[in-house]
């Protein structure tokens, strides 16, 4: 069954309060965007998990926050998607593109090497906090939640499934752009592509 609403909550549905930094050495890049209270709380959760957070899309119905590490480049770990609409949403595509010369990591077996394929690539959005209803190649379903709180679902982007960059690590980068395509699960109606560029 794809698109059904499970009886259990996927992540958390409690209202989010004021943001307080809770992670040593982490930075909430969303701070400068004056996101809504819900988003601030979501970012707080990610900070508490030891990751950095950036709200890459924040609208009435949908908020998308990217969780990442700096090491010293960037490693994009997952998306946290808060769905305040009353309809399920699917992650249809997540892809990355780097600036022309940015080297990425190349792992086959044994230690990882630095390489520079510099090619954009499409990842497999993981099943996130749900395992049910998810098949490889099918967009991960983000279940609906009641306004104004919504449900938040974590969509793992690691492993990416892309041989040349399994953990979405970009070293000594200048720019890394993440593109996310969403659609309503019940009708297939798309959102405009969410596109955000991390700069050094």
């Amino acid at each position: 069954m794809v698109g059904g609403v499970p009886s259990t909550q996927p992540f958390r549905t409690t209202p989010y309060g004021d943001m307080e930094g809770s992670c040593d050495g982490c930075s909430a890049e969303g701070r400068g965007d004056a996101p809504g209270a819900d988003t601030i709380g979501l970012i707080n959760d990610i900070l508490a998990a030891g990751l950095n957070a950036k709200a890459i899309y924040d609208e009435d119905q949908i908020t998308v926050v990217a969780a990442f590490r700096r090491n010293p480049g960037i490693q994009v770990n997952s998306l946290y998607i808060n769905n305040k609409s009353n309809r399920p949403v699917s992650v249809m595509s997540v892809d990355f593109a780097t600036s022309e010369w940015a080297p990425t990591r190349f792992c086959l077996s044994g230690p990882c090497l630095f390489s520079a394929p510099n090619e954009p690539y499409q990842v497999i959005p993981g099943p996130g906090t749900y395992a049910q209803g998810t098949t490889v190649g099918i967009g991960s379903v983000i279940y609906p939640g009641e306004e104004p709180i919504g449900l938040t679902t974590r969509i793992s982007l690691v492993p990416s499934g892309y041989l040349y960059n399994p953990d979405n690590s970009f070293y000594w980068y200048t720019e890394v752009t993440i593109n996310v395509d969403l659609a309503y699960t019940d009708t297939g109606t798309r959102w405009p592509t969410i596109s955000y560029t991390f700069s050094h």
Binding site: S93, V136, G137, I138, G139, A183, D186, T187, G188
Partner: peptide
């Protein structure tokens, strides 16, 4: 474009209306 190393599954429209997105 590079792609993740797995087959892609396209369900019938009435089962999963969004289909697939290829970039």
């Amino acid at each position: 474009m590079g792609y993740a190393e797995s087959e892609k599954v396209l369900l019938p429209y009435d089962v999963f209306p969004p289909g697939l997105t290829a970039v």
